[in-house]
Deep mutational scan, measured.
Amino acid sequence: MPGGGPEMDDYMETLKDEEDALWENVECNRHMLSRYINPAKLTPYLRQCKVIDEQDEDEVLNAPMLPSKINRAGRLLDILHTKGQRGYVVFLESLEFYYPELYKLVTGKEPTRRFSTIVVEEGHEGLTHFLMNEVIKLQQQMKAKDLQRCELLARLRQLEDEKKQMTLTRVELLTFQERYYKMKEERDSYNDELVKVKDDNYNLAMRYAQLSEEKNMAVMRSRDLQLEIDQLKHRLNKMEEECKLERNQSLKLKNDIENRPKKEQVLELERENEMLKTKNQELQSIIQAGKRSLPDSDKAILDILEHDRKEALEDRQELVNRIYNLQEEARQAEELRDKYLEEKEDLELKCSTLGKDCEMYKHRMNTVMLQLEEVERERDQAFHSRDEAQTQYSQCLIEKDKYRKQIRELEEKNDEMRIEMVRREACIVNLESKLRRLSKDSNNLDQSLPRNLPVTIISQDFGDASPRTNGQEADDSSTSEESPEDSKYFLPYHPPQRRMNLKGIQLQRAKS
C-alpha cells in the first residue's frame, strides 16, 4: 500500500489531465453553448442521470443573480465542470439528445442517441419513463405552439383585415386629398384670375382717368384759346370803332377846312374895312368942321342928330352885343352839340362793343353748352356701355358659378359613389376574411389534438420509441430542437415537474 501511493497520485493526475482536456473543448465553445442552450431543457435529463440535484437545479433556474438565459447556462456549465468526467459525459449526452448541432460542434462527431448513462443509472424502465415524459412534454409544447400558431394566424388575419381596411381608408383619404388639391388648384386659379381682372380693371381705370385728364386739359386749352380769340375780336371791334371815330373827325375837319373863306376874300374885306374906317374919319372931320361953321339952329339939329346917332349907336351896340352873345351862345351850343355828338359816338361805340361782347359771350355760352351736351352725351354713352359690360360680366359670372356648381355637385356625387364603392369593397373584403377565418377555424378544430390522450396510444408510441432511437435521429431532433426563430415568436414553456403513473402502461404491456 505505501508503495502504491505514487502510482495512485500519477493516476489521479492523469485523470485530472484527461478531464481538463475534455472540458477544454467545452470551454472553447462556451460562448456558443451559453448563447443557445436552454438550461430548463437540460436539467431534467441531468437530474435523471443524478449529475445534479434539486438544489443545483433551483440555483440554475431560479437564482435572482442569474437574470438572463446566458448567465444560467454559464452557471450550469460551471456546476457540471465540478462534476468531473461524469458531468462531461452526461452533458454531451444531453447535447446529443437536445442540441445535435452543438454536440457536433463540441465533439466533431455525429449524434447517435445511445443514452448509456441513464440506462446504467435507471435501467430501461427509467429510460422509458424519461422518454415518455419527454414525449408528453413535446406534445404539450407542440399543442402550445399550435395554439400560439393559431392565435398568430388569427392575429395575422386580423392584421391583414386591418391592413385592407387601412388601405381602403388610405384610398378614401387619397380621394379626399386629391379632391382637396383640386379644389385648392381651382381656388388658386380663381385667385389668379381675380387678381388679373383687378389689374385689368385698375389699368382701365388709370387709362380712363388719364384720358379724362387729357380731355379736361384739352377742353381747358380750347376754352383759353376761345377766350383769347374773343379778346382779340373785342380788341378788333374796339379798334374798328376808334378808326371809324377818327375817320368821322377827319371828315369834319376836312369839311371845315373846305368851308373856310379864301385869302383873297379876307384881304378884300380888310380893304373894305380900311376904306370904311377912312371914310368914317373923313366924315367925322367934316362934321367937326361943320359944327364950327354952322348956326345955332343947325347946331341944335346936329345935337339932336348926334344924340339920335348916339342912341342909334347905343342901340346898335346893344344889338351887336346881343348878336355877339347870341353868337357866343350859338358857339357854345355848337360846342355842346359837338361834345354831345362825340359822347353819342362814344356811347354808340361802347354800345356796339357791348353788343359784340354780348354776342361773343352768347356764342361762347352756346359753345360751352354744346360742349357740355357733348360731354353729357359721352358720359351717358359711357355709363350705358359700362352698365352693359357689367350686366354681361355679371351674367357670365352667374353662368360660370352655375356651371361650377354643377361640376362641383357632379364631382361630389362621383366622390360619394367612389367612397360608397370603396366601403362596399371593404365590406366584401371583411365578409370574405370572416368566411375564410371561419373555414380555417373549423379546419383547425378538426385537426387539433385532444387534450387527454388514451393510455393505449401512449403505450403504442413508446413501443415504437426504441427503433426510432436507432434510425431516425433527424426526426427526433426536428421535433425536440428549438430554433432561434421559434424563440422569437413563441413563449418558452415550462412543464410541471411531476412523475407519471406507469401502472397503466405496465398492465397494457403485460396484456400485449
Rank of each mutant, 00 (worst) to 15 (best):
G4R: 13
G4H: 10
G5R: 12
G5W: 12
G5T: 12
G5N: 14
E7L: 14
E7V: 14
E7D: 13
M8E: 13
M8H: 13
M8K: 13
D9R: 11
D9P: 14
D9L: 09
D9Y: 14
D10K: 11
D10G: 13
D10N: 12
Y11A: 13
Y11H: 14
M12W: 08
E13C: 12
T14H: 14
T14R: 12
L15M: 13
L15Y: 14
L15D: 10
L15V: 11
K16F: 12
K16W: 12
K16G: 09
D17E: 11
D17Y: 11
D17L: 13
E18W: 11
E18D: 13
E18M: 10
E19I: 12
E19C: 10
D20V: 12
D20W: 09
A21D: 11
A21G: 13
A21F: 10
L22H: 06
L22F: 12
L22W: 07
L22A: 09
L22M: 10
W23E: 11
W23H: 05
E24Y: 15
E24D: 08
E24M: 09
E24N: 12
E24L: 08
N25T: 08
N25H: 11
V26K: 06
C28D: 06
C28M: 09
N29V: 07
N29W: 01
N29S: 01
R30A: 00
R30G: 02
H31L: 10
H31S: 08
H31I: 06
H31F: 10
M32Q: 08
M32E: 08
M32G: 02
M32A: 08
L33Q: 00
S34H: 01
S34P: 01
R35V: 02
R35W: 06
Y36C: 14
I37F: 02
I37E: 01
I37Q: 01
N38S: 08
N38Y: 06
P39A: 08
P39G: 01
A40H: 09
K41P: 02
K41S: 04
L42F: 04
L42T: 01
L42M: 07
T43V: 00
T43S: 04
T43K: 00
P44V: 01
Y45H: 06
Y45S: 03
Y45N: 01
Y45P: 01
Y45Q: 03
L46S: 01
L46M: 09
R47M: 01
R47Y: 03
R47I: 03
Q48N: 05
Q48K: 03
Q48A: 06
C49N: 15
C49I: 04
C49K: 15
K50M: 14
V51K: 04
I52H: 02
I52V: 05
I52A: 00
I52K: 02
I52T: 01
D53V: 01
D53L: 01
E54V: 08
Q55D: 05
Q55V: 12
Q55L: 06
Q55C: 07
Q55W: 10
Q55N: 06
D56R: 02
D56C: 04
E57H: 00
E57W: 03
E57R: 01
E57T: 01
E57G: 00
D58N: 05
D58E: 08
E59G: 00
E59N: 00
L61D: 05
N62Q: 09
N62G: 01
A63T: 05
A63E: 00
P64H: 09
P64E: 00
P64A: 14
M65S: 05
L66V: 00
L66P: 00
L66T: 00
S68Q: 01
S68C: 11
S68L: 13
K69Q: 02
K69Y: 02
K69N: 04
I70R: 04
N71H: 06
N71P: 02
N71F: 03
N71I: 08
N71W: 00
R72D: 00
R72G: 01
R72T: 00
R72W: 00
R72F: 00
R72Y: 00
A73Q: 01
A73D: 00
R75L: 04
R75H: 05
L76H: 02
L76W: 01
L77R: 01
L77T: 02
L77I: 12
L77C: 03
L77K: 03
D78Q: 05
D78E: 03
D78S: 03
I79P: 00
I79A: 02
I79S: 03
L80T: 02
L80N: 00
T82F: 06
T82C: 11
T82D: 06
T82I: 08
T82K: 09
T82Q: 06
K83S: 08
K83Y: 05
K83E: 03
G84K: 06
G84R: 04
G84N: 05
G84Q: 05
Q85G: 11
Q85P: 03
Q85A: 08
Q85R: 08
Q85W: 08
Q85F: 07
R86F: 06
G87W: 04
G87Y: 07
G87E: 02
Y88G: 08
Y88Q: 07
V89G: 09
V89S: 14
V90I: 15
V90N: 15
F91Y: 04
F91E: 06
F91N: 05
F91G: 05
L92P: 06
L92G: 03
L92R: 05
E93V: 06
E93F: 04
S94C: 13
L95F: 12
L95R: 02
E96C: 07
E96G: 12
Y98H: 11
Y98M: 09
Y98S: 05
P100A: 02
E101D: 05
L102P: 06
Y103F: 00
Y103R: 04
K104D: 06
K104M: 00
V106C: 15
V106G: 02
V106T: 02
T107S: 06
T107P: 03
T107C: 04
K109T: 06
K109M: 05
K109P: 05
E110C: 09
E110T: 07
E110P: 07
P111F: 04
R113E: 15
R113N: 12
R113Q: 15
R114N: 08
F115Q: 15
F115T: 13
S116N: 09
S116M: 07
S116P: 15
T117G: 14
I118H: 14
I118F: 07
I118L: 07
I118T: 15
I118E: 12
V119P: 15
V119R: 15
V119H: 15
V119L: 08
V120L: 05
E121I: 05
E122D: 14
E122V: 04
G123M: 15
G123Q: 15
H124I: 12
H124P: 11
E125S: 14
E125P: 13
E125V: 11
E125A: 11
G126F: 10
L127A: 09
T128I: 11
T128K: 02
T128M: 14
H129R: 11
H129S: 08
H129V: 12
H129Q: 06
F130P: 06
L131T: 07
L131C: 13
L131N: 00
M132R: 07
N133K: 09
N133P: 12
N133Q: 15
V135S: 09
V135R: 14
I136M: 07
I136F: 07
K137Y: 14
K137Q: 07
L138S: 09
L138E: 14
L138R: 07
L138C: 10
Q139S: 14
Q139C: 15
Q139I: 14
Q140L: 13
Q140K: 14
Q140C: 09
Q140Y: 10
Q140A: 12
Q141M: 09
M142T: 13
M142A: 11
M142H: 09
K143V: 11
K143G: 08
K143A: 11
K143S: 13
A144C: 09
A144E: 11
A144G: 11
A144K: 10
A144N: 08
K145G: 09
K145P: 08
K145T: 11
K145Q: 11
D146A: 09
D146I: 09
D146H: 08
D146F: 11
D146K: 07
